[in-house]
Every structure is written in structure tokens, then in C-alpha cells.
Design a protein around this nucleic acid. Structure first.
Lengths: 146, 146
DNA sequence: GCAGAATACTTAGCATAGCTAATCAATATT
DNA sequence: AATATTGATTAGCTATGCTAAGTATTCTGC
């Protein structure tokens, strides 16, 4: 077994800390998200149709890793709140086109701004070189889990 | 305004990507966690009493950022599954001492192993220097959000 | 071109997990 | 000793996840 000093943790130790850090980070920002006035599943679904554009219920469910009945109810709530709209797809009348309303788009952008500003205040504690390492690490993770 | 080339994103852009990456990462490992056979809130509570030791219901609720009634029901489920145990604290008979059983400890360690191995497989795609940057970035984030 | 299969979504019914308000028991305070 | 505070539970609401079953539309094979 090759030598492995305290400066180079195993991949598994790294994975464990990555997981734990992700949990703590999201727990931290969750408080900000609750200010949007809608639940986390609704917020996340809004994010998909705002940034990914209008799509069918099945596609939206897949994007959120949820079954269609669950997404159907989430869209019910979004429609009731005036944040999204169901339309029948004229090209396939079984399918829907679910799109964000103006109100929904605005709400999402405000929430995102609030959350990002909140997180950014924490990141400002870091040095320029720490931020550079973070930047690089994020690219790596995104590449790895693709 | 100081020049800021494409190689140095703003703190807010970084915060946004950090948030997004954390979401995708946890979504990825969630599949593994469901193999434990208990819900995510129960799993997370188990993790607290296994790694943090026995504690009162209030402390456990605080650690999980949940209200006491919610935690009371989660502990109900853990007890019913034989994973944790409620005892009255003899020093203050209003309070409980909630501890993991042997079975609960074993289940948690297995689940953690499964999840970590799963994540580690992804990390193995990265080069040694990418892993080093990740290691450094994790320390930075932990420092920043602590 | 029509019968049956497949697809898209909804409805119904169940479990988990979050909350507040109200209650009970034990401890602390005055 | 009376009252206030604290720790936990119960009751009842909402949101979010599931599977199974139903309806409407489209596709396929003959």
C-alpha cells in the first residue's frame, strides 16, 4: 500500500466530507428559501421551467426526479398560486406545456437573488486564492457527476 | 470598476454555482440513501445520535433544524423500527436521552459506506490535482459557513 | 381504417415530514 | 407554596413522496 500522508485523504474520505458539506450548505440556505412563501418542491419545479423553458409534465417530473402524480399536484399548487400555467400541447393533445407566468418568473428571480446574496456574504470571508480553488473545485465536481 | 476577466467570476456567481452543485450532488446520492429503508429525516436524525452521541429530544430537534413535535414523531418511527431508544433522563425527569441501538448504529454505518463508495466512484474520474483543489475547497467552505 | 397497445396525465389513497396550538408533567423561581 | 418555565407529547393542518387504477389521446399492425 502506497504511503498516504495527512495532506492527501483517500477518495472515500473526500466523498464523505463532500457529502456532509453539501448537506450543511443547503441546510444553511433553506432558511432563505422559505421566504419565497412556497414549498421547496414548488420552488425547485419553478426553477426548472424558468431556466429550462416550458415543458411537459413528464419532462418536468423527470427533471425533478419525481413521479408524474407528484408533479401533477405540485403544478396544481403553482397554478393556484398564479406562478405557472398548464396548456394543452396542440401537437399532442395528451401532453401539457407547463410554463412560468410573469409573476412566477419574478418570484423565482427574487428568491434566487436573496439566496445567492446570502451565500455570497459567507464566501466573502474567503481569500482570493481560496475562491479560485473553490471555482476550480466546482468545475471538477460538475464534471465528475455529469 | 476593476477589471474581471472570464477566469474570475464574481462572488455571487460562485455562490450560485455552489448552491446549484450542492443540489445536484445530493440529488445524485439520494438514490443510495433510499436503500436504507427509512426516510431521509429518520436517516439524518440517526446520523446525529450516532456521531454526536445520545441527547435530548430538544437538542436533537435543534441539531436537525426541526421543531420538537416533528422530532418526537421521527423518534417514534425510529423506536418502532428498533433503531433508537428513548430513556428518561434521571437528572431531569422531564427530559429524554435518545440513543441509537446497535441495530441503528449498524444500519447507519452501512448506509454511509454505500453512499460514500457511490460518490467516491465519481470522484475517481478526477485527477490528483483536481482532488487536491477539491480538498482545499471543502476546507474553505467549511470554514466560511461555520 | 380500425382494434389494441402505448403514452400522458389525473384521481384516489397511503406514508412521511414539516408546522402551530394546546396539554401534561417536572423543575425553577419568587 | 404558588407561579412560571421547560421538555415532551397530542391533535390537526399542509406539503410532498409513492403506487395503483382510470381517462383521453396517439401510435401500430393488420
Amino acid at each position: 500500500m502506497p504511503r498516504s500522508g495527512p495532506t492527501s485523504p483517500t477518495t472515500e474520505q473526500l466523498a464523505d466530507r463532500l457529502h456532509s458539506t453539501a448537506i450543511h450548505l443547503l441546510r444553511l440556505v433553506r432558511v432563505q428559501d422559505s421566504a419565497a412563501g412556497i414549498g421547496p418542491a414548488q420552488l425547485s419545479a419553478m426553477s426548472v421551467i424558468v431556466f429550462g423553458g416550458p415543458m411537459s409534465l413528464n419532462d418536468l417530473a423527470r427533471a425533478e426526479q419525481v413521479k408524474p402524480p407528484t408533479m401533477s399536484r405540485i403544478v396544481d399548487a403553482l397554478e393556484a398560486a398564479g406562478l405557472a400555467r398548464r396548456r394543452v400541447n396542440p401537437a399532442d393533445r395528451r401532453a401539457l406545456v407547463i410554463a412560468a407566468t410573469k409573476k412566477g418568473t419574478a418570484l423565482l428571480h427574487e428568491g434566487r437573488k436573496r439566496r445567492v446574496k446570502f451565500l455570497a456574504r459567507y464566501l466573502e470571508r474567503l481569500s482570493a486564492s481560496e475562491l479560485a480553488a473553490l471555482e476550480r473545485a466546482l468545475l471538477s465536481i460538475q464534471k465528475a457527476i455529469r
